[in-house]
Design a protein around this nucleic acid. Structure first.
Lengths: 146, 146
DNA sequence: GGATAAAAGTGGATTTAAGTGGTTAACATC
DNA sequence: GATGTTAACCACTTAAATCCACTTTTATCC
C-alpha cells in the first residue's frame, strides 16, 4: 500500500532516485518496477512488477474497436516500461515517458494505493489548483464522508 | 508480448532502425516481419511474420458484403508487406505505406501486445491529445481502478 | 547539543553498442 | 548500351549503460 508524497529530482540523464521509504515497500518485487503513461493526466503510473501483472490482463481485455478503450490501451500498454533499480537505488525514465509527462528537474512521487504516480512538480500544482465541476461524480462518492 | 514505446526516425530512403529491445523480441521470426495499414487510424501494424500468419485467416474469413469488414479486408490484406531486417537491423518501409500513415522523419513505434503500431510522431500526438466524450465507454472500463 | 559515522542522494567519466549516413555494386528498365 | 533506381555493405558518430567517487543529510551516541 503506497501513500504519501515525495518531492524528488531528475538528473540530466533522466534518472530519478527512489526515496528509501518507497524502496522498502518495493522490496516485494526485488526492485522490478513498471512505469507507464497515465490516461487521464500527463503523468506516469509506477507499479511494482507483480502488481502490474495483475492489472495488465484487465487492460488487455478492453475492446480494440472502441475509441476510448483503444486510446487507453495505446497509452497504458504502449508505454509500459519495465525498469530496474541501479546500484544506487535509481531508475532511468525512458525518453518517451519523460516527454509524455513533461518531466523536468523537479518531480513529485505520490503514493496511490496499488502503485504511485509520478508528476512534474509544475503539472501537479496546476492540477491541484484546477477546479472541476461536480456534475459527473460517481455514485459511491456522492455520500462519502471523510 | 510487445509493449513500451520508442521514438525513432526514418532516413531519406525510407528506412527505419528497429530498436534493439524490439529486435530481441522479433528474433522468434528470424527478422521476418509484416507491415500493413491500420483500419482505425492513419498508422501501420507491424507483426512478426509467424504472428501475422495466425491473424491472416481471421481477416480472410470476414464477410465480403458488410461495408465495415470489406473496408478492413481491403486495408489489412491489401497493404500487407513482408519485410526483412537488413544487416544493421533496419527495414525499408514501402512508399505506399509511408504515404498511408503520412510518415515523415520522426516516428513512434508503440508496442501493442501481439504486434506494434508505427505512427508519425505528429499523428500520434494528435491522437493522444484528442478529447473523446466518455459517453460510450465500454462496460469493463467504467469501474476499472488502476 | 555537538560530533562522528553511516546511509542516501548526486554527479561524472569511461566503455561498449546501437543508430545513422554514405558509397559502391548490381540489376532492371528504357 | 547507358542511365537510373534499389539493395547491400561498410565506416563513423552519437547515445546509452555501467561503474565509481564525492557530497550532503540524518541518526545515534557521547
Amino acid at each position: 500500500m503506497f501513500y504519501g508524497s515525495h518531492a524528488i529530482s531528475m538528473d540530466s540523464k533522466g534518472r530519478i532516485a527512489i526515496p528509501s521509504r518507497v524502496r522498502e515497500l518495493l522490496e516485494e518485487c526485488n526492485g522490478n518496477i513498471v512505469l507507464t503513461a497515465h490516461t487521464e493526466n500527463r503523468c506516469l503510473h509506477m507499479y511494482p512488477e507483480n502488481q502490474w501483472q495483475e492489472i495488465l490482463p484487465k487492460i488487455e481485455a478492453l475492446p480494440s474497436f472502441n475509441k476510448i478503450s483503444r486510446r487507453a490501451k495505446l497509452l497504458l500498454i504502449g508505454h509500459a516500461s519495465p525498469l530496474e533499480l541501479d546500484a544506487n537505488g535509481r531508475v532511468l525514465v525512458p525518453p518517451t515517458l519523460r516527454e509524455y509527462a513533461k518531466l523536468d528537474k523537479k518531480l513529485m512521487l505520490v503514493g496511490q494505493g496499488k502503485g504511485l504516480e509520478l508528476w512534474s512538480e509544475e503539472m501537479f500544482a496546476e492540477y491541484i489548483d484546477s477546479s472541476v465541476d461536480n456534475e459527473d461524480m460517481p455514485e459511491g462518492m456522492q455520500n462519502l464522508a471523510l
